[in-house]
Design a protein around this nucleic acid. Structure first.
Lengths: 192, 192
DNA sequence: GAAAACCTACCAACTAGTAGGCAGTCCGTC
DNA sequence: GACGGACTGCCTACTAGTTGGTAGGTTTTC
């Protein structure tokens, strides 16, 4: 069939969910074992060390993210609509609690205690995302659709930081709605 | 003397540093033991369970924060200067790496795997901080010093989220300067 | 002399990780 | 078409080290 997930895929997606819940040090192979229905040692067969597993999770997460960006670039011509799509994606994820935090944002907070190769992937995600947002803002400014206070790069970093901070606030308050409260005015300020 | 720190104080400040480094699950009593120069069991004498220790860390952190807020309310009359002092405080902490992340912001990201009483303290910090920022913005708007796009509360939540996100970006990039890059334009937008 | 602070010596449970075996599958050779 | 090796996925059983936490004794301090 091809749509039946393999154990390795199950392990990765379970690990992703556990990372989103509480970060690198909050879960163990035993946790995955009981959820996926596989022995601990079998997880080691697929991912010899925990760092291997988490690196795989982050790599896959980045690939999916970049595929999402590419799709937006293809299907959504307007830069403001692209930003709305990006923010709206997270708003939906937080609202339905399916995936209520960015894997890399969570791992970034723990970056000082992460295996080095995982940390590099996390940093890479921040760079990729910031570059994409910068390119949107540059285009929006060039087209006269966005306010041009400050450089595109500065605004992109601010936008990304605010979205991450809004995720954090939603989590701290235990209230998904706060994400929208923070991000809606944000987009309004960017558009002319 | 009174200025010689007690072991209990040492334990709390060591735990605080370790939490800032990587969160609740990234450190153990053994880590504190080796840094402070006390046996593991003696830490349990002062703080029977890890949750007690971390709750103490967060409570103390909040008290210090509220003392800082009170001092600003006393000594800094201008609302924009108060915001500058708040943001500037964190900029300095991040630049000299002495204290490069908000304890409660870090714990908030792990809130789903935190003991409940610790989680409540963390949430309390977000509320306190948000209320203070809201009051500053209300005053600034009333005095005609701040732009009044959106409510004070919305802007306060956005400001807090952006500061937290900026901490995260500084950490992810491994570059303290990014905090200033993000927060400087932020304050400029708030002032008329 | 009592209380607080600190110690040694434990514990059970859990951590990531390893060794080695077994069933099924793919694939080339006879 | 049968056979055998190589490989894959998963297993049981184990390891050494770490986790948070406890029991009970000794030292220090007021």
């Amino acid at each position: 069939m091809g749509n039946v997930s393999t154990k390795a895929e199950d392990i990765v997606s379970c690990a992703r969910a556990l990372i989103i819940k509480g970060g690198y040090n909050s879960f163990s192979y035993a946790d995955i074992s009981s959820v996926v229905g596989i022995r601990k040692a079998s997880i080691h067969h697929h991912f010899p060390a925990k760092a291997d597993l988490v690196r795989t999770v982050v790599k896959q997460y980045r690939e999916e993210g970049e595929a999402g960006i590419a799709a937006l670039e293809r299907n959504v011509p307007d830069p403001l609509d692209q930003l709305r799509a990006y923010v709206g994606y997270w708003e939906a994820c937080i609202a339905d609690a399916s995936h209520p935090f960015c894997v890399c944002a969570l791992l970034a907070s723990e970056i000082q205690v992460l295996p080095e190769d995982v940390a590099l992937e996390v940093r890479g995600h921040f760079q990729t995302l910031s570059e994409w947002l910068t390119s949107i803002l540059e285009r929006g400014i060039a087209e006269g659709r966005f306010a041009s206070i400050g450089t595109a790069r500065e605004n992109a970093e601010m936008l990304m930081a605010t979205v991450h901070g809004a995720m954090l606030s939603a989590r701290a308050y235990g209230d998904p709605a706060i994400f929208g409260v923070i991000t809606k005015p944000l987009l309004k300020r960017i558009a002319v």
